[in-house]
Design a protein around this nucleic acid. Structure first.
Lengths: 203, 203
DNA sequence: GCCTATACGTCAGCCTTGTTGACATATCTC
DNA sequence: GAGATATGTCAACAAGGCTGACGTATAGGC
């Protein structure tokens, strides 16, 4: 997981690439240009696609890396990876989830899902029961152990989020949530929004 | 394989588990409790670790997935993956970057790095030159093609970010940046902040 | 001018987690 | 009863992490 992007320095087109030293020790001219571009980018963030939002791109990258890093360490003790985490999380959050629904959420193949799901079941963290109305389906639930682990991992991540939000005023906090939601593909935004707040019930 | 390292998996007594139907069709009592908890979580997001911030956890997950999904499609045409993207990005952003520095940023092993870096060099997207002061080092630069690709990918991601920020007021935007920065491990926050705005120069 | 530490490359093998393709089984629906 | 659907499974493969071991060139201290 994990990823980033790229860039050509606005003031340094690659073909004109000066020497290494020259680039690194770029004089005050280049510095001034860069400063101006940066200031502009701050006013109209992402509005001008010619000025990539390098700051947010990289912040997002590093933030996400640390965000998933917390659980990773714990999962390791159980012999689980991120894939297990995702499955465990969504099953915990959506009791009675169907295989098909889970595949839809995770967007992986059933073979990939089955590998980790099988392990979660064998180790007693997840349980599958035949559907009541449609007995071909397998409804997924976390066991007590699974629920505890899922909760523990969620709390870990929640703590990091809590620390990050601590110094942010209320309006800023909703801006963060709005931003994250708006980063999602428009087509699935609604589905995610619905799933995110209150999966247990239509409410 | 998956072995629970030196750990006795806490057994999950299936008998304690409530029935599937009971869980899914939880009555209005449960619904009311859930509503209350959700409202509370909105006021004090992440402050109470007993109430996981499920919304932000999941939003972050889905947002990041779509965020890296854009470049993925393009990279595919070049036979590159996310690993290539990361390398290309940081080399483009930090001309003259050293192998050691890149390893530091990416936090992967040199063997992993070398695999993708070699491909990027062979395909003419990245170039390595011996260091001037220390000739053991290899200073990395993007070629013209590399710069273009990097820029193209950054613009793609910038567009998504721009759309996401479009409806967010100025204060909210800085809150987003603050949030992302604060999500990063405190220890490396400074290093990232420095790298993020203006890697070319100490400025 | 050595000698050691450092920067980097490389070979070999392993793991996780994703993929495709083909096929099996149970159950639902018409 | 026939066909669609939900799921499981076998086999093979790829990307991108990892460890361990070892090789080479250069820097730097003495």
């Amino acid at each position: 997981m994990t990823q980033a992007t790229a860039k050509t320095l606005p003031d340094a087109p690659p073909e004109t690439r000066p020497d290494a030293a020259a680039l690194r020790l770029a004089g005050s001219d280049a510095t001034r240009v860069r400063e101006a571009a940066r200031a502009h980018a701050r006013e109209a963030p992402g509005q001008d696609p010619d000025l990539p939002a390098y700051d947010l791109i990289e912040l997002f990258f590093f933030a996400y890396r640390d965000f998933v890093g917390d659980p990773d360490r714990i999962l390791d003790d159980y012999g689980f990876g991120r894939a297990h985490h995702r499955v465990l999380h969504f099953v915990a959050r959506n009791p009675g989830l169907t295989i098909a629904e889970l595949l839809e959420i995770l967007r992986i193949t059933k073979q990939s899902l089955n590998r980790v799901l099988k392990e979660l079941i064998e180790k007693g963290f997840v349980e599958a029961r035949p559907g009541t109305t449609d007995r071909r389906q397998r409804l997924l639930f976390v066991t007590e152990a699974g629920g505890s682990l899922a909760l523990r991992l969620s709390r870990l991540q929640t703590q990091r989020i809590g620390r990050a939000l601590a110094d942010i005023p209320a309006e800023g906090r909703s801006a963060v949530a709005d931003f994250l939601l708006a980063m999602i593909d428009p087509g699935e935004r609604d589905a995610v929004a619905r799933r995110v707040d209150g999966p247990g019930e239509g409410s």
